[in-house]
């Protein structure tokens, strides 16, 4: 029985991929566990985070929030984001107008057959 998923244009057999992932995971694990050295010295300086010799700051000071992840993205596309932010006025009537406007455009595109 062929369990390949067909989408009309694309195809994929997830079970076969999973089977090979397990095989390669097993090979990687044996390489990692049998050839690698598992030793280290817990509770020593060795396990402290590397911060170029500086003292470790308090945990809450270096806590990473979700918005930090996108910093480079927001900074790189600052022009777009400053434009998009202006649209977010917080007034629900503005959002309803946007919804209506975009709905009209979509309808014109779909019903108009463009």
């Amino acid at each position: 029985m062929d369990l390949t998923l067909l989408t009309g244009y694309g195809f994929w057999n997830p079970l076969l991929w999973l089977a090979f992932l397990l095989i390669f995971g097993g090979i990687s694990y044996f390489l990692w566990a049998l050839r690698g050295n598992p030793a280290y010295k817990p509770g020593t300086e060795q396990v402290k985070p590397f911060i170029s010799g500086n003292p470790e700051p308090a945990k809450d000071l270096v806590h990473i929030r979700a918005r930090h992840i996108y910093w480079g993205f927001v900074e790189g596309l600052r022009g777009y984001y400053s434009f998009a932010r202006k649209m977010h006025t917080g007034d629900v009537r503005d959002y309803a107008l946007w919804y209506l406007g975009v709905g009209v455009v979509v309808l014109i595109l779909l019903v108009g057959g463009i």
Binding site: F24, S28, P49
Partner: peptide
Amino acid sequence: FLKENIVPENSIPWMFNAMPLVAMATSLT
């Protein structure tokens, strides 16, 4: 492979150790 495999005290050990294996296995596929 001969060097020590240091697991930092602030880390989440299972995820810290599992991700290199996941990276390797998925790359092979």
